[in-house]
Amino acid sequence: MIRVENLSVRAGSFRLEDVSFEIPTGEYGVLMGRTGCGKTTVLEAICGLKQVTGGRIVLAGHDVTHLTAGERGIGFVPQDGTLFSTMTVRQHLAFGPKVRRWKRGRIAERVEELARDLGIEHLLDRKPFGLSGGERQRVSLGRALSVKPEILCLDEPLSALDEDTHDDMISLIRRVVKEAGITALHITHSRREAATVGDRLFFMENGVVGEQALSREEESPLE
């Protein structure tokens, strides 16, 4: 589960006060809101990349407010699938397990498994240069899932994709997240994306996060 309690964050002149919401274990939460409203700041705070000035963050039952990013058991998929330009796809998938000192055999197994699940086996020895947007996102997702996190944070992961790839990625993300029983928080601008991928929809406005009903029928043909 992802529980944010009265969270306050300060980043330069930007302030966020008293933000609270909860995503139950195994559910897929989507966070929407205007550009600059602080969605990404909330996500960074959950990931341990922004100093928190008040409140609590509870992930999978543990208070992680004062833990480092690496100790929180989260996978992070940034916007545009920021990859390590000098590493091969295989090295991307093995990076986390290696940092966490998994045994070599177990790392190789995990890489194989991820590559199969995400359909990137044929890319394992390529570097990010020349990969398509969808391929990059698959690698980014694989890298985030490599250390078997209980929580996955995705920051507009699909915004740079064309429509067909977009839909493929949505079903892929939803499948792997559900299979692994991961609790996810996904930031997006698209209502359509929110409706197809999410279980719960949160809307952030004026520094307040509120849950909204997510009815898939609401999806209008105009969108």
């Binding site: 960074e44 990931c47 341990g48 990349l49 480092t68 990013a69 690496g70 100790e71 929180r72 989260i74 996978g75 992070f76 940034p78 916007q79 920021t82 990859l83 390590f84 990076f95 986390g96 940092v99 966490r100 890298r143 985030a144 490599s146 250390v147």
Partner: peptide
């Protein structure tokens, strides 16, 4: 972002 991802994966 690249180093932030590395941090979430457990890097110091």
């Amino acid at each position: 972002r690249t180093e932030q991802v590395a941090l979430t994966l457990g890097c110091t």
